Computed example of a mutant assay.
Amino acid sequence: MPLAMAKHILVKTEAEAAALKKRLAAGEAFDLLARKYSLCPSKKRGGDLGEVRPGQMVRAIEQVIFKKPLKTVHGPVKSSFGWHLVQVYYRDN
């Protein structure tokens, strides 16, 4: 079964996610922005979701984690929880 490791930032609006993505592109640290702005409990770990397997995340996020390129910030991605920025740093397909 595939395994991946990812981190994310969850915010309420697409505009917030887009603004944070620009800050990340300018070189700000993902973990620091996650700790400050994310609404997810994972913010305590800098947005780190740990090991993820198919079926554990909502579909929109799973599509990013298991199909998109590694070490790239993807998003804003909409889910039922809000808007996400997702970065996958390991995947074993």
Rank of each mutant, 00 (worst) to 15 (best):
V88N: 12
A15I: 09
S80G: 15
V86N: 03
G50I: 05
F66Q: 08
V77P: 06
K12S: 13
P69Q: 00
K67F: 13
N93G: 13
R23W: 04
V88D: 05
K7E: 14
K71G: 01
A34L: 03
M5L: 12
G47E: 03
A15V: 09
S80K: 14
V64F: 04
D31T: 11
A15Q: 13
R35G: 09
A19C: 02
K36L: 01
D92V: 01
A6C: 12
M1S: 13
A6L: 14
K7W: 06
L10K: 09
K44L: 10
M1F: 07
A17S: 10
E28C: 08
Y37G: 03
M5V: 13
I61T: 11
N93S: 12
K68M: 14
L33Q: 12
R91F: 02
C40Q: 11
S42G: 00
G46S: 03
H84W: 10
G27A: 10
F66T: 10
G47S: 03
A17C: 08
K71D: 15
A34Y: 07
K44R: 15
C40K: 11
W83G: 01
R35M: 10
M5N: 10
A29F: 00
G50S: 03
K21V: 02
E62W: 04
K22M: 01
G46K: 05
L20S: 04
L32T: 12
K67C: 08
S38D: 04
K71I: 01
P69I: 00
M57H: 11
V58F: 02
Q63L: 07
R59N: 02
P76S: 04
K22Q: 15
R23S: 02
Y90S: 09
F66L: 03
L3V: 14
A19H: 06
E51N: 05
